[in-house]
Design a protein around this nucleic acid. Structure first.
Lengths: 137, 137
DNA sequence: TATTGTTATACTCTATAACTATA
DNA sequence: TATAGTTATAGAGTATAACAATA
């Protein structure tokens, strides 16, 4: 059967598994996988919401919801931009920084779990290949 | 940033890309990615709908919809089981067999596209690693 | 007029529950 | 009563469109 060995199909199956697994591990933190991209961006520097939406590739209305959730966790703060009072600069709180660190540890856990059956060199080759493929997206 | 090199995250991103790409390539055939699993199962032997649902891991009501779509394409036929008249045995038509062959070719195309940046040996290592990981799901 | 963030609405995908026909 | 298939309904997740405040 073509599907079981086709790389595209394998990537989809494994990617979905990784996503479900990450959702389970993040749940105790009150986070979901989709929050991680936002946290990573805001960790670097405060950012306007529409810029976040563009960077993450998701609709602005969805970013509003996600930020509401992160706000409820005390992980981010919306600060009105005084230069342009339409914009909200989203910045990470100290609690948000700690939360992001924990979330990244859970993400690392998923990787560790998943690559467990591979030899170190095979795991390395996998990471390298995936990184190469992701670079062309 | 952890996400760009984390294997779990890379798998998710690449899997989603593969899925979107496959959807585009299947669209001219009137198929969507989720139909492929059904076609592959029914290609081997006629199967009852609930068995299909269990095999694909999707709700029976969803299988009904998918089969309606495949039926509308003339790809499958529901045949009442004479031993147990509650069951419908789903079988592939000749047109369905041809369609399945084309669909698998499109799936192979997605793989070819995606692994293009890799050397043959790297592509081989990738396929082997993914197959190993998928085996433990 | 155009843009930022927000709200309202709709669409896709899937699951759960209620229904029918057979057993 | 239990099971196979179906229909109806509801829940995530996301996108599009309309809106208020500001530029």
């Amino acid at each position: 059967m073509a599907q079981t060995t086709n790389v595209a199909h394998l990537l989809k199956r494994l990617g979905d598994h990784a996503h479900r697994r990450l959702a389970v591990l993040l749940e105790p933190l009150g986070l979901r996988p989709r929050h991680l991209g936002l946290l990573a961006l805001v960790e670097e520097a405060p950012m306007a919401q529409l810029d976040l939406a563009r960077a993450v590739g998701v609709a602005p209305s969805v970013v509003v919801d996600m930020l509401d959730e992160l706000d409820a966790l005390g992980a981010v703060r919306r600060v009105r931009d005084r230069a342009d009072r339409r914009r909200q600069l989203v910045e990470l709180t100290d609690a948000g920084r700690a939360l992001h660190r924990k979330a990244n540890a859970r993400l690392a856990d998923v990787e560790t779990e998943m690559i467990a059956p591979l030899s170190p060199s095979a795991a390395n080759a996998l990471r390298k290949a995936l990184t190469t493929l992701a670079a062309q997206l």
